[in-house]
Amino acid sequence: MTVASVASPPPLGLTLTARHVTYDGITLFRDLTLDLPAGHWTCLLGISGVGKSSLLRLLADLAPAGSDYHVQTSDNRPLTDRVAYMAQQDLLLPWLSVLDNITLGARLRRQPADTARAASLLEQVGLADFRHRRPDQLSGGQRQRAALARTLMEDRPVVLMDEPFSALDPVTRLQMQDLAATLLDRRTVLLVTHDPLEALRLGEQVLVLTGPPASLTSHPLPADWPAPRAVDDPRLTNQQGALLARLVHQRPAGAVS
């Protein structure tokens, strides 16, 4: 491992205020506030269709037109160009090699690609020998590793991840969680997931999104419990039960408050 890739940009904290956001004519968020503490992992948990991804997309500036929201950063500068994005699909371009895929950002911005850094990142995700392969020659886990390397290559202080590991088999998923936790340490991360175990392993703050109307509640975590947590930690099992119960017993959609 080289030192070059470890040096990360200074941590950046965020507060997102979604004043009024509609999607397909239906109000999704009204006066919802999301805090992302600087340099920490926030895991956003919720059932399907509750609007987790839509909330993340506001931060990625991928919001539907006409959305009324505001992002306040800890250094008061705009968030534009300081975000990296990782989705459930690896989004690798099938006509490019792994190396060319992870340097895509530079080419899109007409900047010279730092191939030395790219090579070192590929080494860190364990794909050093695969740099000239095409994505269709990789396994699902390897492809997601390449996507992680591409995310790291962007070297942004804020990383938004939308269910990045949900398509992987359980063991590969655990390995990817550990790898991501190591490599994205001290960044401001928002991880959207529907997997309570994933949220509990990685989250330094675990938020549950319920609705409609959408509201966020923080799930309290035991003190002195640093992430990433070992998968065989007994506290994880207890917490997972509590969290699942919270998800199952949330107010059903459309109920009168």
């Binding site: 990625a60 500036d61 991928l62 994005y85 895509l104």
Partner: peptide, 9 residues
Amino acid sequence: DLAQVMGGS
């Protein structure tokens, strides 16, 4: 989406 977040023109 990815290209937009990456700042592509």
